[in-house]
């Protein structure tokens, strides 16, 4: 049931020949109330899907921006339950924007895999990305998510070779997340010319839309990626806006949403510009 929200969104975008803009923010960053405000404002700012980070003490695949976001969130006492609470309040006012949870395995394991899947479905979550749970270890998680009707979304990377690709796409639903750089989030920059063949290869193997992330910080780069992929994901640049707003004593929500709007505009206009050019 819930995975169809992702499918419906990508079907609409395809019909309009638009790429999706996926905004990543950390739940509870800098606090639960502001985090909810940001989420509620993201669809109007142009976010087609939302990735909601679950904070973890040891985010091994993250660069400094998202590490700091997780620290701010944990300092504000964010829990898995409060994360799901934020999502549920968002969902009460928005029935169509898919929400993907993204995080690390240990907090999910402690919640209990079945309970996590059921609670997430109840909160209106559509899909789940667990960074440190590769296909080799993900059987129980995939079973629990399947039972609750949630999509397990897998990461494919530049190091995912042909031997591994079938296992990586095997139980993936909704879309594939292509990590465009070998590295942590928000440090290296994606190169559209390298991304295009990788996206084509993943699409052929999975038959699913391909979202690209980990190396996109600017509207210009987002537009380049939007021309070759089904979605562009931006996270580090958005959470850096939170940090900057806090530091400058500015309105956090406004600053993040205006940055998101600029990125969304670039993504949505990318293919139109391409046709005109």
């Amino acid at each position: 049931m819930t995975a169809t929200r992702i499918e419906a969104r990508f079907a609409t975008l395809k019909a309009e020949n638009r790429a999706a803009f996926i905004a990543y923010v950390m739940a509870g960053d800098p606090d639960a109330a502001t985090s909810l405000d940001i989420l509620r404002g993201l669809p109007a700012a142009g976010a087609d899907l939302i990735e909601l980070g679950m904070p973890f003490s040891d985010p091994m695949a993250e660069g400094p921006p998202i590490q700091r976001a997780a620290q701010r969130s944990l300092l504000a006492k964010t829990t898995l339950n409060s994360t799901l609470g934020i999502a549920k309040q968002f969902r009460d006012g928005d029935q169509t924007t898919p929400i993907i949870l993204m995080g690390y395995y240990n907090p999910v394991l402690h919640h209990g895999l079945e309970a996590f899947a059921a609670d997430a479905a109840d909160a209106g979550i559509d899909g789940v990305i667990i960074v440190d749970c590769p296909p080799e270890e993900a059987g129980p998680l995939a079973d629990a998510l399947d039972a609750a009707g949630l999509a397990l979304i897998r990461l494919a990377t530049p190091t995912t070779d042909d031997k591994r690709l079938p296992a990586v796409v095997a139980r993936t639903r909704g879309f594939i997340y292509y990590v465009s750089v070998a590295g942590v989030t928000g440090v290296k920059e994606a190169v559209a010319a390298d991304v295009a063949p990788a996206v084509a290869r993943l699409k052929a193997a999975s038959g699913l839309p391909v979202a690209v992330g980990f190396g996109i910080r600017t509207p210009q780069r987002a537009a380049e990626i939007a021309r070759v992929a089904d979605a562009a994901v931006v996270g580090s640049a958005l959470v850096d806006e939170i940090a900057a707003a806090l530091e400058g004593n500015e309105n956090v929500t406004n600053r993040v949403l205006s940055s998101a709007a600029a990125l969304a505009k670039a993504v949505h206009a990318a293919r139109v510009e391409n046709l005109e050019a």
């Binding site: 091994m60 395995y105 080799e136 270890e137 990377t157 190091t159 995912t160 070779d161 990586v168």
Partner: peptide, 20 residues
């Protein structure tokens, strides 16, 4: 063969590190 000592051990790393 899965790198398990009973219930412990295993291979819980991000996809980029799985091939290496």
């Amino acid at each position: 063969t899965h790198g398990r000592f009973g219930d412990y051990g295993g291979l819980f790393v991000a996809e980029t590190l799985m091939p290496p």
